[in-house]
Design a protein around this nucleic acid. Sequence first.
RNA 1: GGAGGUUUGGCAGAGUUGGUCGAUUGCACCGGUCUUGAAAACCGGCGUACCGCAAGGUACCGGGGGUUCGAAUCCCUCAGCCUCCGCCA
Length: 424
Amino acid sequence: MLTIQSLREEKDLVIRALEKRHFDAKDSIEQILQWDAERRATQSKLDDALAKSNELSREIGGLMREGRKEEAEAIKAQTATYKSISSDLKEQMHALEGKIHEALCHIPNAPHDSVAKGRNADDNVEVFRSGDASTLEHHQKPHWDIADQCGLIDFELGAKVTGAGFPFYRGKGAKLQRGLIRFFLEKADDAGYEEFIPPHMINPDSGFGTGQLPDKEGQMYHMADDDLYMIPTAEVPLTNIYRDVVVREAELPIKLCGYTPCFRREAGSYGKDVRGLNRLHQFDKVEIVQFAHPAKSYETLDAMVEHVKGLLEALELPYRILRLCGGDMGFTSALTYDFEVWSAAQERWLEVSSVSNFETYQANRLKCRFKGADGKSHLVHTLNGSALALPRIVAALLENHQDAQGIRIPEALVPYCGFERIDF
RNA sequence: GGAGGUUUGGCAGAGUUGGUCGAUUGCACCGGUCUUGAAAACCGGCGUACCGCAAGGUACCGGGGGUUCGAAUCCCUCAGCCUCCGCCA
């Protein structure tokens, strides 16, 4: 969430930035600042009342030690008024803090200067394109037909055992999956990201830390008995490693990566969006996460974008990079680049990665700070990106690299898969 | 799942017959003296957050709640860790 300091210091800037999301924050920010002023005034009064009763208690302590019981009793009588004053003030404080917190939670991150205003995906700005995004003239089969014909992925079996959106990968389909995961992890390792295998369930505190809660509660699978959520992305456990942690400035940037399955309820999706591998309830992803110095986080973002580009180049897939407009950006992000690969048979772009800088928005919730040269604590900037999400990559590989006889595995991937082709 | 123990500042570790305890001490860390430099020794400093222009004040001894004029110290509750038993890949 936004820091109260940023609202105090640069309210107008924040309001103007949020307009790019078509989010009118003016009233709620004014309200928050008013509550904040009340809160501070209340705290002063509360502190005074507590100071007074602490003082009386010390006096009583002194008198009791000296055995002057009656005098002590007399002072005791005075404490009652301060006690009721301070308990009233405490209540007011908590109420105000609660309201401020609640209101802050409902304001999305302020977009970076470079973010366009825009309403939806149509207003995203294409900043880079690579490869030939044309339609295949012959043998163009959508990936679900190929997956079925070659026995790579069994959607019906998944539907029987679990439900729609939980496919089985089998044979070369499973090996391709495993090969891609290894390929992505090795590349992340080469780039200096430390590998983690995190838990696949998280508690509510972690969900709050990265911003899934309370905003996206309905998108996660929830285990009611234990109050745990299935992770929607490795971002959540990886980023929460540094919840309530003060790091040394010299440690930054901290680079983590991890492979996990991801679980999403995808409530409200339908039609061609969910056909085949386009949208699943469980999918595999390698995620990269960085904790960066605020002065350097946009360099870091650029480096992460370059890393993802390198992966897509190696897989020889046509892709483009979009800078998301205000209206299409996630709630917690300040700047997001989406990567989309071309699906030759579907003739559409499929999102395979989203690389974002959250600036201090997550760090403020996480309370992840570093001690600066000035001796003071500062919030870090957090960033993350998919590198990469598997299903749509598999879809694009199957569709774009098909010929009359089958599928060609890109050279870079062959050592990880152990085969060069998948024959029809 | 059952029984017992435990949870204190970056780490280690005092303090639990409630009363100048936000907390002894050691290590680590920072500054200084000494030294050509370093080590050692000695001296000083050293938790976090909030309120306040400041002086200063308030809160925090796993989380939450309670008793009390007053709680790290007592009670309840939840969680983590350790030991034993049970169950189990």
